[in-house]
Write a protein that binds this DNA or RNA. Structure first.
Length: 482
RNA sequence: GGCCCCAUAGUCUAGUGGUUAGGACGCCGCCCUCUCAAGGCGGUAGCGGGGGUUCAAGUCCCCCUGGGGCUACCA
């Protein structure tokens, strides 16, 4: 029983570009639905558009899916490898008179459309070839004229889409025309291929973006003509760019690959996307595994969402801080490499140092890219001092002398560890009758060039005696020369 | 243009006739503190407009407005 009712869903992207967060979110909802229902999640590549489909996009797509952790149970199936199926099904419809050959040229069609537009009228395919005589058809075929196959749509009546999220939506047949199911190049159109595959793959629930809602009556009509059962439909809200328009390249980071390269963690991206259109209830921060039992289409809303990187970034910070140090070091390595700070493979001491740097810096950043950026002075000499910091901490009377005192303290300090450095600093400030901050701030600026960062004593110990002392002296010199 | 969907703060959302309209990000302030984060506390800001229905409307109905989608030999 449970087996019979088991759900089968699919994510069916077309490999015409990178996977953007809209598509990824649709994939995620399909995945969550399948897992929550103990069903099957199928991946299908809808690559019937030869012009725009590219093999490298398919690879990138699979890569992105794997990176996100959205494991599929079946597939990937490729529509381009199933062309015979569509041909057979189209031939069947032709034979049964449910579809017909249309010999109109694209030019004729376009002219009709433009004319209608000029007259301010609606354009629907006028049905020119709808009732061609068998003789005429044969004549056209023999003369080698190109043709497409169109589905015959009833003139009267309507088709109702029962959507799990939106309720019943009615479409009048008079607003639909006999649309094309097979192009003149012999390839199926989306509406047709998709339906043939969904039927053959026994898809029980079609969960996809809202942009497909208007196409659903066409698909239902196809299914009906083909004599297959209807799946259930659920059209999830779209994800819009910050300017409310449809997602596109010019909106900065929109593809999964881009977020990845900007230093976002897959679990943060997943968590953030899940919250776009779905609400789990109490907790907002929750990993994929915890989302599964909570997921249901009833809690998916109808409103298009505008994605907002600010919240994603915050969430990434949350995840970053929860990641075990070893994994964090591994995830961050490509970013340190790209920034030219390290060159893997890292040796023993080098690796130890790297891990300490990561640990020191990770608490105060939100992305892996920021992490590398915040680490530069652990690998390079300081070549400039933060301007505001200079005004605040270097310009004061006696700053250079202060730095020299600190340098000489550290020069001989034993042992050179966190506790002794800190107490050494605190004692020195007491001795000089100044606040610890008066000593700490210029030191940070001197050894890191920055006014913010990890705890000063952590930096000092990590950097080591030699570098710290030399940077302090260098800064003192710099101040004196100003 | 036609058809369809949608409408709670800047953003993501809870809400299914009776709530001081709840949470999160952001922003502001305070606390903590060597800085910056993190964390804690507090604050800022919302039911697009107009008509109905009802004792009572963010919630139901209609209109308007706004946004989005489809209307391709794209998916």
């Amino acid at each position: 029983m449970a087996l019979l009712s088991s759900v089968r869903v699919r994510f069916a992207p077309s490999p015409t570009g990178e996977l953007h967060i809209g598509g990824a979110r649709t994939a995620l909802f399909n995945y969550l639905f399948a897992r929550a229902k103990k069903g099957t999640f199928i991946l299908r590549i809808d690559d019937t558009d030869l012009e725009r489909s590219r093999a490298e996009y398919t690879e990138a797509l699979l890569d992105a899916m794997r990176w996100l952790g959205l494991e599929w149970d079946e597939g990937p199936y490729y529509q381009s490898r199933r062309l015979e199926r569509y041909e057979d099904e189209a031939a069947r419809l032709l034979k049964e008179g449910k579809a017909y050959r249309c010999f109109c040229t694209p030019e004729e069609l376009t002219a009709g459309r433009e004319q209608a537009h000029k007259d301010g009228k609606n354009y629907l395919y006028p049905g020119t070839c709808r009732d061609l005589t068998p003789e005429k058809i044969e004549e056209y075929c023999e003369s080698g004229r190109d043709f497409v196959v169109r589905l015959r749509i009833p003139d009267e009546g309507s088709t109702v889409v029962r959507d799990l999220i939106r309720g019943e939506v009615r479409f009048n047949h008079r607003d639909l025309d006999d649309f094309i199911i097979m192009k003149s190049n012999g390839l199926p159109t989306y509406n047709f291929a998709s339906v043939v595959d969904d039927a053959e793959m026994k898809i029980t629930d079609v969960i996809r973006a809202e942009e497909h809602l208007s196409n659903t009556p066409r698909q239902q009509l196809c299914l009906e003509a083909l004599g297959y059962e209807q799946p259930r439909y659920a059209h999830v809200p779209m994800i819009l760019a910050p300017d409310r328009s449809k997602l596109s390249k010019r909106h900065g980071a929109t593809s999964v690959e881009e977020f990845r390269s900007r230093g976002y963690l897959p679990e943060a991206l997943i968590n953030y996307m899940a919250l776009l259109g779905w609400s789990p209830g109490e907790k907002e921060i929750l990993p994929l595994s915890e989302m599964i039992p909570l997921f249901s289409l009833e809690r998916v809303n109808k409103t298009a969402a505008i994605y907002d990187t600010t919240k994603l970034t915050w969430m990434n910070g949350q995840y970053l801080r929860a990641v075990p140090p070893e994994r964090l070091a591994a995830e961050a390595l490509p970013f340190y490499t790209a920034a030219g700070l390290v060159e893997p493979p890292l040796g023993g001491e080098e690796e130890e140092y790297y891990e300490k740097v990561v640990k020191a810096v990770s608490d105060r950043v939100k992305t892996l890219a920021e992490m590398a950026d915040a680490s530069t002075y652990f690998y390079r000499e300081v070549d400039s001092y933060d301007e505001k910091g200079v005004r605040k901490h270097f310009r004061k009377e006696g700053s250079a002398a202060l730095l020299r005192r600190a340098a000489s303290l550290l020069h001989t300090l034993e042992p050179f560890d966190l506790d002794s450095v800190e107490s050494g600093y605190r004692n020195l400030s007491k001795e000089l009758g100044i606040s610890a901050g008066r000593l700490i701030h210029p030191t940070r600026l001197a050894i890191s060039g920055r006014t913010m960062g990890p705890g000063l004593f952590d930096i000092i110990v990590l950097l080591g005696r030699e570098k710290t002392v030399s940077r302090l002296e260098k800064a003192a010199l710099w101040i004196e020369r100003q």
